[in-house]
Design a binder for these strands. Structure first.
Lengths: 209, 209
DNA sequence: GCCCCATGTGGACGCCGTCAACATGAAGGA
DNA sequence: TCCTTCATGTTGACGGCGTCCACATGGGGC
């Protein structure tokens, strides 16, 4: 896999990289085969040696985005333990709640930091989220966080099924409304305030007066 | 505004109707100016007498979808009072909670019943949801429902700000994950079960064991 | 040193949105 | 009644897109 092999260098790599860059800038619309060919300095159609069709190209970018999303969530989750004071360790329940909240924060973090990649991801998200929680998958991380909630007694096991979809829906909806929905243009301060309310609501529901 | 006036009948109307039909079947991708021209039996470019560009056409369909969404929410809300037993009227708190839940149910109802129109709506949703709650607007109906929650003491007024965005995010995210996200293919039973969990979570939060 | 086949090229087709120039005919005033 | 005007519809063109095809090229294995 040395560089500049073949006729034109290892094009697949260059092409994928250019695709990620374009998607980062212009979202799904930036993923045009011909435009990318131009950007890499190769003729259109060359892409078809490496990608079956446009969809395959999108899938490659989506995989990158998926990893980025996972990382963003992991970063926030790790923050929970890192920023906890050593002398007064939080209770397991507090920690579990904090980690669940961090999961959501990381999700929205990524959506806002990489709107283009985030939007590409959700035009090509693989259908069946694997049932086995996997820390290297956004949905898996969420499931692990919820399992922890149950383990430490912060969540009634009877209400565990479906909780992952509820949480995912909430942060995903918030992200979509912000990115390409009616909440675009919401200023950053209001944004974080609303996210706080959202995560609180998931945690405590609508508290009566 | 008689029918078949002008050269070709009142084309604007026919065109808009065809657009709605196409969007209903194929979502935003169905809204192609040329394709619609063919469908109406008129030459391409005729559209430009009535719509500035493709975006204007999308806006027309989005308005129809907006009305449909409002109606779906209203229907579910009206069901609350209609199905309540006359002899044992629910408490005001119960009624408010039920109406808020109905608001969410109606939202998802419409997303599932008219996926094409729903998706078009959210490629052209007007930016600033008006601050004044209006019963003829989806966001307004949600706000009214939440205001009722506060009035009857079912929601702490201090937690009212942002609640509308939390609720909207949740049902919107759920709809998007179902329509074009990783939850497409979820069978109807699991679907309604998950929606129940989602709405319960908004109401009561994550209850401890 | 030669041949094969992976890789890249150029052209074509049918879509799309959009602009400009032209055609048509209904409406309304002379 | 006729003639003009202007809204409405048509034809053609341009550039961009994804995709299929036939063809060119040259590096690596024999």
């Amino acid at each position: 896999m040395t560089a500049t092999r073949y006729h034109h260098g290892n094009l697949r790599e260059a092409r994928a990289q250019a695709a990620v860059e374009a998607a980062r800038e212009h979202g799904p619309d930036g993923l045009a085969i011909r435009e990318l060919a131009r950007r890499v300095g190769v003729s259109h159609n060359a892409a078809y040696r490496h990608f079956a069709d446009r969809e395959a190209l999108v899938d490659v970018v989506a995989q990158v985005a998926m990893q980025g999303l996972t990382d963003a969530m992991a970063r926030r989750q790790d923050d929970v333990d890192r920023t906890a004071p050593d002398d007064v360790p939080p209770s397991p329940q507090e920690r579990a709640r904090a980690r669940l909240r961090a999961t959501g924060l990381g999700y929205v973090d990524y959506a806002l930091a990489e709107p283009g990649l985030f939007r590409v991801l959700f035009t090509a998200y693989p259908e069946a989220p694997d049932a086995t929680p996997d820390a290297d998958d956004p949905f898996g991380r969420l499931n692990l966080a919820l399992d922890e909630m149950v383990e430490v007694g912060a969540l009634d096991p009877a209400r565990r099924p479906g909780a992952e979809i509820a949480c995912w829906s909430a942060v995903h909806g918030f992200s979509m409304l912000l990115l390409e929905g009616p909440l675009r243009g919401l200023d950053p301060d209001t944004r974080t305030a609303c996210l706080d309310v959202l995560l609180d609501t998931l945690d405590r529901g609508h508290p009566a007066a």
